[in-house]
Design a protein around this nucleic acid. Structure first.
Lengths: 248, 248
DNA sequence: TGTTTTTATTTGTAATACAAATACTGTATG
DNA sequence: CATACAGTATTTGTATTACAAATAAAAACA
């Protein structure tokens, strides 16, 4: 349970990623006490210094808790720093339980329409240029091939750019989570039918609204984008209060 | 700029907190290259191991970036992990620039009404009990003394409990930020006149709405709570779209 | 002038020793 | 028998030293 798969280079990064995935996946359950540092180092064939570095990193992500003469104990999901970029990246394909994906999309539904509205009020010229560029790249594959899908990287960049443009220091922290959510979506997209054309149109409405300094339409257009994704993923989200003027 | 104030015990915690505050306050500007590990350790009178531990911690908070043969460079605020609990705690009284406080309250205005609405749909009996208890503790000082203020800790617990009750894994990550925001508010509260009685009444409306499984009133009541705080702090927040049915 | 090699600097990793904290155990004592 | 106390063992925390790896800067060279 604590040893790396055969053939994987034993270095700090791999060990950290491996342990993160073991914990996040539930292979190492919470409250489990990990081996002490000396045994753990021997088990993995590394120095105590290195395993300590790794454990320190896991501690920073809220995955474990360390105490003298007690050892290293795995914490429950409520203590995990879920917005940590590495944690999200490494959890891809693992945290697909509906509760996780549901929380993620729910968060987006709460954050992103507001971010779009704020962006419509505050975006500067550079922000707008960036958003336009992201939008253009999103659909570039579809120009010649109707059946092509959206450019994932551009899609992610688009949402990050909107969040950045809203100028809120804290909302920017979500860029990583959005990225994780979108990658989840893509990961699942081979199983579901996605209407890329409609999605692209909604994105376009967002861009236009921001450019026209129209926060309310930016809000509702972003709702449209997200509701498309939620429908594609076959999720059911209830209880989130959306602004009334143009519910989609 | 890199040495601890006289009389402060030189240990890992103090060094970390000191450096965090130096960076957050701008005393150490971004892009500054810190001394190399050996010099830094000597400067502080600690071992290289310890300064490395400290730097690793700062790295985890996004405050610095390290590269072989380049050294340790301070990153800009956009890279900081602003939701880190320690970072928020240690930044209290420093990050009072209006942009920071504004971002914080704006975030709360986006998150918390939605969280209250979701809590109204999903809170279980334990959650409700906890919320009632927090509410009761909030006003306990005011029963005999009309002029007394709200119990800060209970106030913080109240908001955390509501967020917890909404059952979203990601929204829970904000407990710490809320705590920071409320402490900021308290910190500034000697300068402003706060109507504690009205505030308490709004909190009561939130509790009632959650208990009555009424998401829309929970939403608007929480808006009321936050708008009180925003008014007290003399902040001006524009661009956030609030649900229409009961704007306060 | 442009390219390659060497050198120097800085962080990264390892190994060892000891310090500090704390759970556990055994023992004496009421 | 229960409790308090002292001692012991275990585990993480810190310090020191040595060397490896990466890379920016300087030097040598075509």
């Amino acid at each position: 349970m604590f040893v790396l798969p055969e053939g994987l280079l034993v270095n700090k990064r791999n060990i950290t990623e491996f342990l993160v995935r073991q914990i996040v996946s539930g292979n190492i359950k919470h409250n489990t006490v990990l081996p002490n540092e000396i045994d753990f180092a021997a088990l993995l064939g590394v120095s105590r210094t290195m395993i300590r570095d790794v454990l320190k990193s896991l501690e920073g992500k809220g995955l474990i808790e360390r105490r003298t003469n007690v050892g290293t104990r795995v914490r429950s999901i409520h203590s995990w720093n879920l917005l940590d970029q590495e944690l999200l990246d490494w959890s891809r394909g693992i945290l697909t339980q509906s509760r996780f994906l549901l929380s993620l999309m729910e968060l987006r539904l709460i954050i992103e329409p507001q971010a779009a509205a704020l962006a419509a009020v505050r975006a500067n010229d550079d922000d707008l240029l960036k958003i336009w560029d992201d939008y253009a790249r999103m659909g570039s594959d579809m120009e010649n091939d109707e059946a092509a899908s959206l450019n994932t990287d551009a899609d992610i960049d688009f949402h990050k750019s909107v969040i950045k443009a809203c100028g809120n220091l804290f909302l920017s922290q979500f860029g990583g989570a959005i990225q994780g959510a979108l990658h989840h979506t893509i990961y699942l997209s081979n199983k579901v039918q996605i209407d890329h054309k409609t999605s692209l149109e909604c994105h376009r409405r967002v861009v236009d609204a921001i450019e026209n300094r129209d926060p309310q339409n930016a809000y509702s257009a972003m709702c449209c984008v997200l509701n498309n994704a939620i429908r594609d993923l076959n999720l059911k989200i209830s209880g989130v209060i959306l602004s009334d003027f143009d519910k989609v």
